[in-house]
Amino acid sequence: GTAQAADAIKMRVQTIFPSASMYFGMLQDMEKRINRMSGGRLDVEMLPVGAVVGFTETLTAVHQGIVEAGVTGAHFHSGKVSAAYLFADQPAVGGLDQLSAVAWFLEGDGNKLYREMHDDHLKVNIIPFITLLSGGQPLGWFKNPIENLEDFQKLKYRSPPGITGELFTTMGITAVALPGGEIVPSAERGVIDAAEWINPGEDINLGLQDIWKNYYLQGFHQATDITELIINKDFWNKLPDDLQAIIETATLATITTTLTGNIYRNAVALNELKEKHGVKVYDTPPDLFAAFAAASEEVMAKHKAADPFFKKVAESQEEFAKVVVPYWTKLLALYASMGEAALAKN
């Protein structure tokens, strides 16, 4: 362990992950990194979900200073300010992928709007940093394979809550929102016929592979998914400049470690699902993407009309996409072609 200075500043971080989650492990790596970089002057402690409060109350707990910081998803605040959703997940409008969405925060107006949301719209005493990526989430687990949208529309599907659920509903799918612990029992008793959770590395802990064997890898609903470190501003303002820089740097480093962790650990988990559990992996039927794009347009138009700040954020993302997508999508095509060529050779 790291030696702690006697007057170490304690930073308790209420996360939304259970201790068995691979993301909780990655956050504990972040904890160690910060503690080492600060020479023990900052004593970070990552807390599993529910240790102080549950996942829906993390924002309020940090705002009130019950804990100094939290790791949560901005989409959980979308009940308070609808635009919050856009800082975690994006619908299919501009064609941003996981990395170009991060670029919007760091290179575009993202971080500025992000702070504006916390200050002026959520009105919380919080400074936010994006940090943990879990995008490219699978469409999920299905009782029976589906051929097209029509097959999907016949099913009861566990989707994430909020605007993501609204997108599925707009596609004509019966979307049910269930907390993580309820998914497997509901699948067993036929309350749902299909479900998404996070990604292979996390899904394998949930145990849906024991009930259903059909896995659709390409989801579109959380193609980008960004998790945040939120810090109580009073606490933040009291930190000396070097400790602030250490935290900032650690959030950036965690973007990298979660990205690489996702690539490798999901791949390993997917192999295990296929080989040990006999899971069949399918490509998502192409007409679903078109339907999702149409639903995105409808839902976005509705929220843009309802809330000027939502409109402002969405348009900033669209503008950013217009600049980067023509270039970046070609590069992604390069990697895709190289990967396909390698797969064809094997």
């Binding site: 409060v53 549950g54 829906t56 109350e57 309020t60 707990a61 009130q64 200073g65 019950i66």
Partner: peptide, 14 residues
Amino acid sequence: GAPVFYLMVLHAFQ
């Protein structure tokens, strides 16, 4: 510290 007053409300709501 003092913010625990709020914790009580969060737990009731939970």
